Amino acid sequence: MKTAHDLVAAAKARVNEVDLTAADAAIQAADVLIDVREADEFQAGHIPGAINIPRGLLEFKLSNDPVLSARDQKLVLYCKNSGRSALAASSLQEMGYLDVLSILGGFDAWAEAGKPVAGAALPPFE
């Protein structure tokens, strides 16, 4: 019987991960930057330019959106700490996507490194 950790480890062995030193260049070269976290996580803060497609909807959304269904586009994925994005990248590779990267360490590593973060601003309290 496998655990979630086992599944993530197996996915990480199959996918290409990019570390933070190469993440900016990978994002610049990407056709689409996808945050696979849940909507509330995305709203709390995300990498600028990312679109939010939660992990549970990813395969369906990409299959049904003509803009996202091209298998040769460059996709960069991330989540909180790179577990969900590794699973998502593996799934997309199985679907025939040819150029999929996952950001190693995910959003947590990105934010901790002081890289730019977009998100909902708090309303002013006056």
Rank of each mutant, 00 (worst) to 15 (best):
S102H: 01
V100P: 00
N52H: 07
Q28S: 11
M95E: 07
S85Q: 03
A120T: 14
A9H: 09
E17P: 05
L122I: 07
F125R: 13
E41D: 13
D35N: 07
I51Y: 11
G56F: 11
L87R: 02
I34F: 05
V67F: 14
A118Y: 07
L77Q: 04
A39Y: 03
D24F: 11
A11Y: 00
A11G: 04
S85G: 10
S102R: 01
A25G: 14
Q73R: 12
K2G: 11
A113Y: 05
A88E: 04
V18L: 08
P123H: 06
K2H: 12
A111R: 02
I27A: 07
A39E: 14
L57A: 11
A118L: 15
W110T: 09
N81A: 15
E112G: 08
L57Q: 06
A25I: 11
P123Y: 06
G119Y: 07
R55A: 03
G96K: 12
V8Y: 01
K61V: 15
F42N: 02
D31R: 01
R55G: 01
K12D: 01
G106D: 02
D99R: 05
V32D: 05
L57E: 13
Q43H: 10
G49T: 09
A113E: 09
E59F: 04
E112R: 10
H5A: 08
D6E: 14
D24T: 13
V32W: 09
L62V: 12
N16R: 05
P116D: 11
V18H: 08
V8Q: 02
A111V: 12
Q73A: 07
R14Q: 15
N52S: 09
G56T: 11
V8F: 03
L33P: 07
V32H: 07
D35W: 05
N52C: 13
L101R: 01
A50F: 05
A22K: 12
K74F: 12
L92C: 02
G56C: 11
V32T: 13
K80M: 15
E94M: 04
D35V: 06
K12H: 07
A25T: 13
S82Y: 00
L57D: 13
A70V: 13
E112F: 12
L87Q: 00
E126S: 15
Q93Y: 04
E59S: 09
R71C: 04
I53V: 14
D99C: 09
F107L: 07
L68E: 09
A9C: 15
F60M: 14
I51H: 08
A44Q: 13
A30M: 10
I103K: 00
D19S: 15
M1V: 11
A4P: 08
K61E: 15
A11K: 00
K2N: 14
N64Y: 05
A10P: 00
G45K: 00
S90T: 01
D6Y: 01
K74Q: 14
C79F: 03
M1T: 08
D24W: 04
I47K: 00
Q28K: 11
A11W: 00
H46E: 12
F125T: 14
L68A: 03
A120D: 12
P123N: 09
S91N: 09
Y78C: 08
W110Y: 12
P124N: 03
S63F: 04
G114D: 07
A30H: 02
L7S: 03
A44M: 10
G96H: 06
E59K: 10
